[in-house]
Nucleic acid binder design. Sequence first.
DNA 1: GAGTTTGAAACT
DNA 2: CAGTTTCAAACTC
Length: 786
Amino acid sequence: MDTPDRAAAASASASTKAEDSPLFSFIDSLSPIEPLKSAYSTSSIQAYQSLNITSISSIFTSPHDNVHKESKLQKRSFAEFSESEVCAGESDKNKPSKSSNAVRFACISTLTGETHKTASSVSEGSVGLPEGPSDLPQPGQFDAGSPDHNKTLCHGVRSDLKQEKCRKLQALQTAKNTSEKRKCLFSTEVKLDGCQTEKHNDEILTCEWDGLICAPSAELIAYDEDHKGVQLAVSNAESCGFLLSKLTGDGDMSDRTHPSSSTQTYYRELIMEEDQTENAELIQDGEKNISSEEIQDNLYEANGCIPIGYKVETQQQRGMRRRCLVFEAAGYSNRIMQKESAMDLSVSTCKGKIPVQNLSNPGKTPSPRVLRGIGLHLNALALTPKDKVVCQDPMASSLVSSSTTQQEAHGKLSAGENFVNPGGELLELQMDDDCPAGVFLGNDHNSSQSNSPQKKRCRTDNGDDGEACKRCSCKKSKCLKLYCECFAAGVYCCEPCSCQGCLNKPIHEEIVLSTRKQIEFRNPLAFAPKVIRMSDAGQDTGEDPNSTPASARHKRGCNCKKSSCLKKYCECYQGGVGCSSNCRCDSCKNTFGKRDAAVSTETEEMKEMKQGEDEENAGKEKENDLHKANVQIEDHPFLELVPITPPFDVSSLLLKPPNFSSAKPPRPTKPRTGNSSRSSSKAPEAVRSRKLSKVTDSGLDEEMPGILREDASSGNCAKTSSPNGKRVSPPHNALSVSPSRKGGRKLILKSIPSFPSLLGDTSSGSSMNNSESAFSTTSPLALGPS
DNA sequence: GAGTTTGAAACT
DNA sequence: CAGTTTCAAACTC
């Protein structure tokens, strides 16, 4: 609705303005981006005018001086601009003026710089004008703004191009400001810019632009080699948007142009810093998502409108890439899993994408970390059909619930995005399918039965089809609250979902992440698995000490009153876990294990004892090895706890996901947990409760918190360092793929920060290159929760 | 499929 | 921290 109006207004204003500035008209004619214009037209136009004016003034003021000044300005401006813009764009949502100014400044600087470049370095530019002349003529060109002029003159062309870029940027920024979705915009902006830059790098498409663009691209490259060039590139990238970040991510693209890579690194650094600010902002900005969505839509539309296929592709790819990151990670994870796991997960939806990624990163073998890092929701995995597992598997690892994970993931995302680029296709899939969730395969084996309702649903609905799995039906929560199973599970909503106004989609990635952060900030354990069943421990422990999820929620315990803990209303029951001392349920009849009053009474003392023990144990374990601790705790307690699950070897467990599931139905009967032990004697129960409590409380508590803490403290580290990935992966592995891990007992994690983890993991592990990895660590994208 | 129940999540 | 409201799943019909 708005777009048409905007477009109309834009067109009107554009027409009027066009009259004012021939150059504008020319640009309009040239700009393939017009579609975007529709969305941002008004703002863009205004910005454009302002730019023209400013640029002109600046140019005219001191032609000769301009050369020197410009050079300085360029550097400064770029640097400043980058910072200011970044800050403004990302950090300041409500600072349109700032951003606009920054943009303008950037544009100007870019223009001057470009012209400069063209004159000096880029003699290539058809013009090949000497510096002196170049300066003078440039302004003149600008002033004249005659399209022809520009065309003929490289400078003019550049200016036009840059102006367009600037315009785009401005438009985007303005849109952001207006929409308050800077990030989204920013991201989109980045995409656009990135596309452009990429175009340049890519040798500029076959478009009208080709001729024009060539010069700039050349400039960029040449400069890239030089520090100046880097700055320019950076400035351009920034001005354009996060291109760099994404570019960096784009192995393909970056590879093509070395200069870009250098710039990317620089850019990355900038971005890193920026990201933090952004992240903070993002967290608070809930609405951005919408705007981002719109923006993306606009972009896509624009792309569609854009005659230049190449451009469109680039944009899409980027968009895709971002999303792909997750998928990519998933893909890697999947691959790994395939390798590792007896089960052969077909990438199905992702298949096409995955190969791409592989191609992009042929040399790179996805590290297990990556997979882990991807932390999809285990639940989600469980839910999703095996075939799809691929994508999600990595996600599954996401067990890493905590904010750190998010951060990491976020950072990874950003980084991943960059890397992801190669996987652009993946994005498409996601985009198209929109179903990361769908992706999540979920080994139904594991989760399905025991775990979350989601899984059940999926099973029930899908059986194993996964794809069909039905998910949430949120109406008011927009799938951005824990009410939403998908969101809680860290999975994007997909087709099966019957949700309304869903924002839990890859398109709204930022919003989702920010929301997650908010929720985590409120409750660090919010996304921790409600119930941990860990069988994985062994493996997990090995892989992810941290990740080993303790069920934070379960720790809390249920508060059932009428369901007697015999229905899914009860999280404990749902998770196939017996109630613990932490539960406040009334008339608990949890078949998996009750916390009887008597037991509780006795146990209280026991509990105290236990707590002490637990703490000690936990402390010891932590001290010794988180991994070991996890393993011990998880293994023993869980085994006992989970009545259903027979004591398996870790490997056996992993293989047997079904065990757990099977457990469910039989629960009451089979579970030695509840019944026999309990009924037989309080003592056993007490013991069991202890175990449970230990497991849940000590083990989980400590573990989780510890993990979180660690993550939080070392969030960055995690990002950067493989350890994080490991952390994440372990649970993930266990659940999702690895045959060994598959073990029957999977975590029931309802909520796993799939998104962040995925991104992060993917980025870091799979796609991320060395340089990228570093980049990713600091990746700006990562929402620094603060 | 619509309506009710339920308890967690979110809010105050 | 406790109480209340909101929410969506689970359940029932």
